[in-house]
Simulated assay, not measured.
Amino acid sequence: MAESEPAVKPPDLKDGDDVGSRLKAVRRMHGLSQRELAKRAGVTNATISLIEQNRVSPSVGSLRKVLDSFPMSLAEFFTLQFDDSSQIFFRADEMPDMGTGSVEHRLLGSGIQGREMSILYEVYPAGSDTGPEMLSHTGEEGGIVVSGQLEVTVGAEAAVLGPGDGYYFSSRRPHRFRNPGDCDCILVSANSPPSV
């Protein structure tokens, strides 16, 4: 008869950290009931319940099997921060205009520390543009036109985009934007890493 795997806490788990509470928080974060998680992991509902109550200490292998249901690695499980109180929802008046000149660039989540992307609500008035010089920087960017028209030039290629049309390219390629229409162009765009 094979020996079962010993119950071992990975070395990055601090004394006092609670596997059961972490599992419960991760399960709730993913919107799963104990029963749904048990079914996905191929274990009994009682097993999940006992782990969450800290009445059973799962082996590394057993915990890995449960975490594969999310999917999530052991490292992610033990380092995930649950006390993140960052703002999630933003009203229009909470997005500062980061634009220059006549182009409006409203930045979503401007106060979030360590932001890894910029999401912008942009308004290009008729005839406005990003300037005569082509832009170039690290990262990637993309956007979708909500209304109006936007001429996007990337290197030697150019296209006039309308509502529902979009673009996505490496920001290292020289680029510029211009509204050739006679009304405002509204655009939702993103770039990573954040340039604003």
Rank of each mutant, 00 (worst) to 15 (best):
T138H: 15
T100V: 07
S118T: 12
R28P: 00
A158C: 10
H137C: 01
I144F: 10
Q53W: 00
S171I: 09
R55Y: 07
A92P: 03
R172L: 14
S102Y: 09
D184V: 06
F82K: 10
S136A: 15
K39V: 11
G148D: 00
D12W: 15
P6I: 04
L37D: 05
A38S: 01
L187E: 03
M29P: 09
D165V: 09
D184I: 11
S110L: 09
G42A: 09
H137R: 12
I88W: 08
S192C: 14
P11A: 14
T79E: 06
Q34A: 12
F82H: 02
E157Q: 13
E151N: 12
Q34M: 13
E157L: 10
T153M: 01
D97M: 02
Q87F: 03
N45Y: 14
C185E: 08
P10S: 08
D184P: 06
V66Y: 10
D93Y: 12
I144H: 01
I186F: 07
L63F: 02
R27W: 10
H105S: 09
F90Q: 06
P193A: 11
M98G: 08
Y121T: 03
R178T: 02
M98H: 00
E3V: 11
L80I: 13
V26E: 06
L187K: 01
S102K: 13
Y167G: 00
L107W: 08
G164V: 00
S21G: 13
E104F: 05
V196R: 15
N191R: 05
P163M: 02
L107C: 02
L108F: 15
Y167A: 10
G42Q: 10
F78T: 04
L107R: 08
V123D: 05
S4D: 14
S49P: 09
P6R: 10
V60Y: 05
P132Q: 03
V43Y: 03
D129Q: 02
P58T: 11
A92C: 06
L161N: 05
G114D: 15
S57K: 08
A126C: 07
V43W: 02
G99K: 09
C183K: 15
G131F: 03
A25F: 11
V152I: 10
G162R: 04
Q113Y: 05
G20N: 04
G109H: 06
D17R: 01
A156P: 11
S69I: 10
G131N: 05
P96H: 02
Q81W: 00
F169E: 06
G143A: 04
Y124M: 04
L50H: 14
T130A: 08
I119T: 12
T130E: 05
L150E: 07
E122Y: 00
A7F: 07
